[in-house]
Design a protein around this nucleic acid. Sequence first.
DNA 1: TTAACATTTAGCTAAATCTCTAAATAAAGA
DNA 2: TCTTTATTTAGAGATTTAGCTAAATGTTAA
Lengths: 92, 92
Amino acid sequence: MAFGDTFKALSDPTRREILVLLRHERLSAGEIGAHFDMTGASISRHLSILKAAGLIDDEKVGKYIYYTLNTTVMDDILNWILLLKGDTEGEK
Amino acid sequence: MAFGDTFKALSDPTRREILVLLRHERLSAGEIGAHFDMTGASISRHLSILKAAGLIDDEKVGKYIYYTLNTTVMDDILNWILLLKGDTEGEK
DNA sequence: TTAACATTTAGCTAAATCTCTAAATAAAGA
DNA sequence: TCTTTATTTAGAGATTTAGCTAAATGTTAA
């Protein structure tokens, strides 16, 4: 997955809010959807975009699908930003 | 300017490349455009999006307009990412 | 002032995006 | 098995976006 997909995934406010929700807890698709005034189908679409960008992982448990934050991709964009800022830590 | 505008601005590969070009030097719109196989009008549009997002500044000098990187907005998204990563430095 | 150069703005098209409703898939419980 | 619950997939409509060409703006130089 390229940078573009990550930034594109982060450019939507609903998706950023989903990531914040997942900051400390694992939540099912339904629990996530309950936080938004939007159909479950739309939330599902956002979740699939976040997953394709590598920003979340999913795990099926019975009839639920639980989502968790995956911060490894963020390290890449973190370094890219630090590189732009001229921070030598991000250059190598 | 909100987070969404910043991430949206960063989601385009041409715009990210422009930021990298400006990392060490100040460049005019024409000099920036010379790096891309794209019309000057399209580059101009990208520059206006980057400027609206606060990622670059411009300065008119004679008939040229010079662009420079502005990294202050990046600090905000840097902190937002650190917050997601659970880094306490980014929480305050 | 006129011509040339640098850049932006306006208007267009094609492609992408977000949201919805309806239908499909999969698991749980009666 | 049949029904309900959880979630995703498919298709449609509205909006946004990236690129183009042509026209407009502003500056320099002849």
